[in-house]
Design a protein around this nucleic acid. Structure first.
Length: 604
DNA sequence: ACGCTCGCATCAGGTGGGAAACGG
DNA sequence: CCGTTTCCCACCTGATGCGAGCGT
């Protein structure tokens, strides 16, 4: 069944006093009562998220709520009761069975699987003025907690999203690419939190790649609507941990694996079970817990959920869209073996490259990773990158119409929502930002006149570092896992002034964390810094520093060693992490991606 | 002598492609 | 029959272990 209402009765029962405290996912505990929270208050608005907390919130936070439009959120079956606006954010947690070992055993009800959107704050990717903070999702957190989440590798996600992201699922599990990587701010530095990702159905349809585009093909299987036992949650292995810890650096979910093997009994903590040819939406959950990892459900405001529509994807067992395949090959280091002319592109002197860019002269300042900005491959890959805008904007091949969102999603409105989101916020955003949002590639590849492109660069920088967190090159953005190990080797000095990336406004650097700590220690309580202020700061810095960002990259190339610049601070400046690893530097060659793309499109 | 750094080799694991197998 | 899934392959990345070299 589609669950919603059917399950609501179960959830409607009042909370059991004995269940006031329940384990967080990370520590696990079966607590059926927890599910009660999901449908305590009937229906919610269809088109707007109006969390109950909004009335208690600072108006500025409340303003972050914008009209909800279809497509960017998880699917809520018509028959399913939408979770009430009054539903506390904490209700997004699965009702039970939440330990890493059992989380997969999905105790989620169908209602939870499909109808949880209302309890989850969905923010369009282009909030505010559509600047660097555009990919920051503001939570509906209460007075004591107002987390801000930033999708670090959003530019990359946007690239995939433009073509309708596909994720391979295998029996043994396949990593996501791009993977989810977040920066978090606004948490209490001393409080403990569990951070986990949940993947839910994005719509009720079964999808098929036909005629070069994704089309719906019947309804999603019932089993995928919540009755299957598959795990839908991946708990960050560092959970639980302090807010300071989570805010210190990027939170990477690079080891999250997707599988279609419901019966898998091993590695359930790393696996999320999905169904092929269904569309899914990852969501980030932040749950305040005790030091033991126990969540205090007395507070409705201690759980927050964040959804980034651009991370939506269709699970497949084999890639359908060649554009997606090429993007994966071009950006995923593990797929380098499939890149065309790899050797010639990466090892040959620029002048000797077999596939020189026809627009090298101009591209040098249109594409940051261009010839003048030899940068680490990892940055390049993750970042705005090497992909020539020509691929999408040359006269021969515009945005692929056969399979892009533009063509495939207009039918259901999904793409419309995605594309017009910024326009809906016209009040906050500038026309420029709207334009950029509507044409991500323009922004990413256009000249320095376009702040978004530069911003993306900075953002990507941070992301790039987090791509393979275990790598020494990931430095401060090192994801979970080897983060601690690597920290031994890095210094904490920042080579430059605060970066123009969202992180600047994100209060994410250590200094600010320290300040926040002091603030809290002093008893001032919640972090006062206004997000809007931060946003404004970021905006002001964006353009001003856009050129500097490129300049820094250049300097990093031949300048003094920047290894010292490596820092634990998340979203470290990309340029500061110049690698001396030849295997990477070869990728920094400007037309690598371009060559690959030209090859791809001109030599079918 | 001890500790540290660096370079190299090895191995585990991740990647997409392609063919074969499967199933409706 | 056709679409989907599974398996194997070659290629690549990244972690790890080991030994050599160097400085204290």
């Amino acid at each position: 069944m589609l669950g919603g209402e059917g399950e609501s009765n179960t959830y409607a029962s009042s909370k059991d006093a004995a269940d006031e405290r329940r384990k967080s996912p990370a520590v696990d505990v079966d607590d059926p009562a927890a599910s009660n929270r999901f449908t305590e208050h009937g229906m919610a608005s269809d088109r707007y998220y109006i969390p109950s907390t909004i009335s208690k919130q600072n108006p500025e936070t409340a303003c972050s709520f914008i009209p909800y439009t279809p497509g960017g959120t998880v699917y809520t079956p018509s028959s399913a009761a939408r979770y009430p606006s009054s539903l506390h954010l904490g209700s997004v947690l699965p009702p039970a069975g939440f330990s890493p070992s059992t989380a997969g055993r999905s105790h989620f009800s169908p209602a939870y699987q499909l109808g949880q959107s209302a309890g989850c704050a969905l923010y369009p990717p282009y909030t505010g003025s559509g600047s660097a903070l555009g990919n920051m999702a503001l939570p509906t957190g209460g007075p004591g907690m107002r987390a801000q989440v930033y999708l670090c590798n959003r530019p990359l996600w946007l690239k995939f999203h433009r073509h309708q992201t596909e994720m391979i699922i295998t029996k043994q599990g396949r990593r996501m690419f791009p993977f989810l990587s977040f920066n978090i701010a606004g948490l209490s530095v001393t409080a403990h939190y569990n951070v986990f990702v949940e993947v839910v159905l994005a719509d009720p349809n079964h999808w098929r790649f036909q005629g070069g585009k994704w089309v719906t093909c019947g309804k999603a299987d019932n089993s995928s609507q919540g009755t299957d036992p598959g795990n839908k949650v991946y708990i960050h292995p560092e959970s639980p941990n302090t807010g300071a810890h989570w805010m210190r650096q990027e939170i990477s979910f690079s080891k999250l694996k997707l599988t279609n093997n419901k019966g898998t009994s091993h590695n359930t903590s790393q696996m999320i079970v999905l169904q092929s040819l269904h569309k899914y939406q990852p969501r980030l959950h932040i749950v305040e817990v005790t030091e033991d990892g126990v969540e205090d459900i007395n507070s409705d405001l201690k759980t927050q959920c964040f959804t980034f529509p651009e991370t939506q994807f269709i699970a497949v067992t084999a890639y359908q869209n060649t554009d997606i395949t090429q993007l994966k090959i071009d950006h995923n280091p593990f797929a380098k073996g499939f890149r065309d002319n790899y050797d010639s592109m990466y090892t040959a002197p620029e002048g000797d490259r077999l596939t020189p860019s026809p627009t090298d002269s101009t591209r040098a300042h249109q594409i940051v990773p261009g010839t003048r900005y030899t940068m680490q491959p990892i940055f390049q890959d993750q970042f705005v990158n090497n992909l020539p805008q020509n691929r999408f904007y040359n006269s021969e091949r515009a945005v692929p119409q056969t399979n892009s969102l533009l063509s495939s999603q207009t039918e259901d409105g999904a793409s419309q929502r995605w594309l017009v989101a910024s326009m809906q916020q016209g009040g906050n955003g500038t026309s420029a930002s709207n334009k950029l949002d509507l044409t991500p590639y323009d922004g990413e590849y256009s000249s320095s006149l376009l702040p978004y492109g530069i911003k993306s660069l900075s953002m990507q920088t941070s992301h790039a570092l987090s791509y393979y967190p275990d790598s020494p090159f990931t430095t401060m953005s090192a994801g979970w896992g080897s983060r601690a190990a690597y920290q031994r080797k890095v210094t904490h000095g920042l080579p430059w002034s605060p970066r123009p990336s969202p992180t600047t406004a994100f209060q994410e650097d250590s200094d600010k964390v320290k300040a926040q700590i002091e603030e809290e220690v002093n008893g001032s309580g919640a972090l006062i810094t206004s997000w809007t202020e931060s946003q404004a700061a970021a905006l002001s810095l964006d353009k001003a520093d856009s050129y500097l960002t490129c300049k820094r990259r250049r300097l990093s190339l031949n300048g003094p060693s920047t290894e010292d610049s490596q820092s634990n601070t998340k979203c470290e400046d990309l340029a500061s992490v110049t690698t001396n690893n030849s295997s990477y530097s070869k990728e920094a060659l400007p037309s690598k991606g371009m060559a690959a793309y030209y090859s791809f499109y001109t030599n079918p």
